[in-house]
Structures are given as structure tokens and as C-alpha cells.
């Protein structure tokens, strides 16, 4: 049955949420690197309605594309992934076909995807970020860009933009000068006080923040006494990092007022509720799709049930965290 419109809910509880110019039918967003350019999940969900009624890419309010760089990137040598307790260590290396291919082949198809699209940008220099944003603003009408400032895999003078306040400011302000699109800065979790980085990002012109990227991690193969992945260290994602990232979202919520896209280990309704309560306006689903590909559908159902049970709107839920716990007695 076609009509998978997220607005038609059993209880009439809407999951609509606005992120700047983006009006999302659900606060769930496919995380960058975990949904490629949307095509595979669109197809999988379309083919799976017999097993799971309502299965559709539209269960995700939006997707964030795989990072797009000026030139194609081949990525890192294998092995690129290793499972960790309740998580995944990866070192893909921002492999992507580059801007020209994106513009010629992928962008036209993305407009037919069936959900909103946020383009993730990555560069080696602030200049590259600005160039990308400028070209994409001229040649496409994607309403929002996410700046991948925090990916720990690509070495740039030893650390990522998101780990140094000056370079974070520089990239965001350079991009801000060349585009009026909704700018989301994706922050790194591995910093002393993410609140400072959040403030710096907003001051430099970010309209929203993704909190956060994967956590730097490592797994050793003790028989061979090597790393389990090709690039020694990588990024850890999945349920293992969820409480860690939850605390970051909480911190960032206190530091700035712009919308937060939480990203870290959400798989179940409970996880998304936690992020929303703490103050995220949207929650990215990444590794969760590989633990339960149908989790967006199940979470949306669960969110509606929760809202119905508590007789509240999604807007009322977001940021409803009570800092003081009343313990009675």
C-alpha cells in the first residue's frame, strides 16, 4: 500500500520536526556514511513491505549523504571494520566518488529519493570546504549541508578540524561566507569540553550541530599483535557509545540554543527518547541500521505510542529533561 505518509498516525500524534528550512516527517535521520546516498535502503525498504508493513525510506525524516569531497577518495586499506562489544570500529577513510560524480550522477537521483537530503561535505583544508559549499550552493538546491569536521580517520596535520578551536572557526566561517544554506557542523566527541566547541561553531556561523561523530578507538588482534583494522585506530559507533554521547548532547544543550542532531548508538525507541528529552531536535541513526534495519519504522511507532501515553507533542518532549530528580520521601 502506498500511503506511508508519516503524518497519518494511529493516535494522530505528529512526529514532524523542523530544522531550519527542513521540515522533517520524523526526527530520525540516516547518519552520514551509514546510508550511502540513500539508494540501497530505499530499495531494501521498498522490497520489504510484505515482511514489514509501512517499510519505506520515508520512515527516516532525512538522510545525510556519505561525505562528498572535491576529488574522489579511495579510502583506507582493509580490514576497515571490526565489531566491538555493542559497537563497531571503523576506518573507511571517507571513500567517495568526488564532487563531479556527485553532481552528475548522484544529485539528480537524490531528489527522487523519497525523503529529505542533507549533503555531508569534507575537505582537507578550509578552502576546500568553502569551494565545495560554494559549488553545491550554485549547482544544487539541497537545503542543508553537514560539515564533517570531526572524522578521525583522515590525517590532517595529525588531528581533525573539530579538535582545534581556531581551525573549527576557520572552516565554518569560510563556508558561511559562501553559502546561505542551513549549515550543520558535525562535532568530534574527543575534546576536553565540547561546550566550547559548540559555542565556537555557532559563533562562526553554524545553524545547527551534530553531536557527535564516532569516538576514537582501537582493537588489538593478540595473535598477530596488530590492530584489527588497517589504519590502527578508527571510530567507534553503536550502542556502546550511547551514554557517552548522551552526556555530550546534554552539555551542548546547556552551551548553545541552536538545534542539535544527536548521533551515537540509537537503535531503539528508548534511545531516541533519551536524546530528545535531553534536548536533541533530531536523532541520527547509523550503526543502528545494521543492528536492526527496520529500527526507524519501529522507533517511529514507539515515539507515537510514547507521546500518546504521555499526552504530549514532540515539541513538548524535546528538551523536557528535568535536571533535578525528585526522589520523594
Amino acid at each position: 500500500m502506498g500511503g506511508s505518509s508519516a503524518a497519518q498516525t494511529a493516535e494522530g500524534f505528529s512526529l514532524e520536526v523542523s530544522l531550519g528550512p527542513l521540515r522533517l516527517s520524523s526526527p530520525l535521520i540516516g547518519a552520514s556514511g551509514c546510508v550511502a546516498f540513500g539508494e540501497e535502503y530505499r530499495r531494501l525498504y521498498e522490497n520489504s513491505r510484505q515482511a514489514m508493513e509501512g517499510s519505506s525510506i520515508a520512515q527516516l525524516g532525512a538522510i545525510v549523504t556519505k561525505a562528498v569531497s572535491l576529488k574522489p577518495r579511495g579510502g583506507n586499506p582493509p580490514p576497515r571494520v571490526a565489531e566491538t562489544p555493542a559497537g563497531l570500529l571503523n576506518s573507511i577513510g571517507l571513500q567517495n566518488p568526488g564532487l563531479d560524480h556527485f553532481l552528475a550522477e548522484l544529485a539528480p537521483r537524490l531528489s527522487q529519493l523519497g525523503t529529505k537530503v542533507i549533503v555531508n561535505l569534507v575537505g582537507d583544508t578550509a578552502q576546500e570546504f568553502a569551494e565545495l559549499a560554494s559549488i553545491l550552493s550554485q549547482k544544487t538546491d539541497f537545503p542543508a549541508f553537514e560539515l564533517d569536521l570531526s572524522c578521525p580517520n583522515v590525517e590532517e596535520g595529525g588531528r581533525s578540524f573539530a579538535m582545534s578551536l581556531p581551525s573549527l572557526r576557520e572552516v565554518i566561517s569560510r563556508v558561511r561566507q559562501v553559502t546561505d544554506r542551513f549549515l550543520i557542523a558535525k562535532l568530534a566527541p574527543n575534546v576536553c569540553d565540547i561546550g566550547e566547541f559548540a559555542q565556537a561553531a555557532v559563533e562562526a556561523g553554524a545553524d545547527a550541530l551534530t553531536v557527535a561523530n564516532t569516538w576514537i578507538g582501537m582493537v588489538v588482534d593478540v595473535e598477530r599483535r596488530t590492530s584489527r583494522i588497517g589504519r590502527t585506530t578508527g571510530g567507534v559507533s553503536g550502542p556502546a557509545i550511547r551514554p557517552l554521547t548522551m552526556a555530550l548532547v546534554h552539555r551542548v544543550r546547556q552551551a548553545v540554543r541552536v538545534p542539535i542532531l544527536a548521533s551515537g548508538g540509537a537503535v531503539r525507541t528508548q534511545d531516541v527518547l533519551e536524546y530528545l528529552i535531553v534536548g536533541a531536535s533530531a536523532v541520527q541513526i547509523g550503526t543502528g541500521l545494521w543492528i536492526d534495519p527496520m529500527c526507524p519504522l519501529k522507533i517511529n511507532r514507539g515515539l507515537r505510542e510514547y507521546l500518546a501515553r504521555h499526552r504530549m507533542s514532540l515539541g513538548e518532549l524535546i528538551g523536557s529533561f528535568q535536571a533535578e530528580v525528585s526522589r520523594g520521601g
Binding site: 579511495g74 579510502g75 586499506p77 576497515r80 571494520v81 571503523n90 573507511i92
Partner: peptide, 26 residues
Amino acid sequence: ELPMACAIGVCNGCNLPLRSDGGRYP
């Protein structure tokens, strides 16, 4: 066989080193 995460072609976790690909792993 290689470690795999998504298995449907999105994550690029299982990209293969092939002789003809010049280190680009497509």
C-alpha cells in the same frame, strides 16, 4: 570473506583490494 557491517553496499566496510584498482577500493 572480509568483515562486513551493512552487507547491502552502503558502508564501504568490506571493500576489496583489487590489482586493477590502484589503491582506490571501489
